[in-house]
Design a protein around this nucleic acid. Structure first.
Lengths: 104, 104
DNA sequence: TAACAATATATCAGATATGATATAAATACA
DNA sequence: TGTATTTATATCATATCTGATATATTGTTA
């Protein structure tokens, strides 16, 4: 990973150490990060076509700020919240599965 | 869902209310439960062929009891831990995506 | 431009998930 | 049978994730 991507991730709360790559993460952790970012991106793309962050939040009893963080790839957002938000946009398990399958 | 399945889920900590179906869960929550159970099952199947719960735990800095809970579909286990455990068995994002895509 | 809607950022207390530990129960296998 | 291995259950302090709230920023539209 290049310098700019690392800085980007760090600004969102990801702790990827001082190395210039994912070397400080186990392979499993690195893939989890990639899965989260893929879901995050996809959530934003889907949601923008259909509704506001507030709408998504209401459907899953969350809050607009939390959906903003989800879409921004913030490290504090769980995979579960990302999936719940995706589902709120009408995504199916099939849609979500395909996004995850496309990682790596 | 029949009575026995409901009792089974409840014994694992799932709060599905008093109804005889998933009616007390939002559609999104119900799907999340199904995704967790699917990952849980798949984890056990994959893991048993390859290694012990202790082995999986070591690979992802978790503990054997936690892996046991993951395989038993305990409600306290996050999707993230399920995915990390799957990855520890050698599952790829593609494998995981297919399992999720098959829900519903 | 002004006014409004949408999104981003900051903070925080409460809830949930965590690994660790101890140990019970089950399973394998000599 | 007994003994070792594996898995399940219970408890707990800590870390992480949560929604709520306030508010700043950005974007849109009159």
């Amino acid at each position: 990973m290049d310098q700019s991507k690392r800085k980007c991730l760090e600004s969102k709360g990801w702790k990827i150490g001082t190395a210039s790559d994912f070397l400080e993460l186990t392979p499993e952790e690195a893939i989890v990060v990639e899965i989260k970012l893929a879901l995050s991106q996809s959530l934003r793309e889907r949601r923008q076509k259909l509704m506001t962050q507030k709408d998504v939040a209401a459907k899953i009893s969350s809050s607009q700020p939390r959906i903003a963080k989800a879409e921004n790839g913030d490290a504090s957002v769980s995979i579960e919240l990302l999936i719940r938000a995706m589902l709120a946009t009408g995504a199916t398990p099939r849609d979500i599965g395909q996004i995850i399958a496309g990682v790596g």
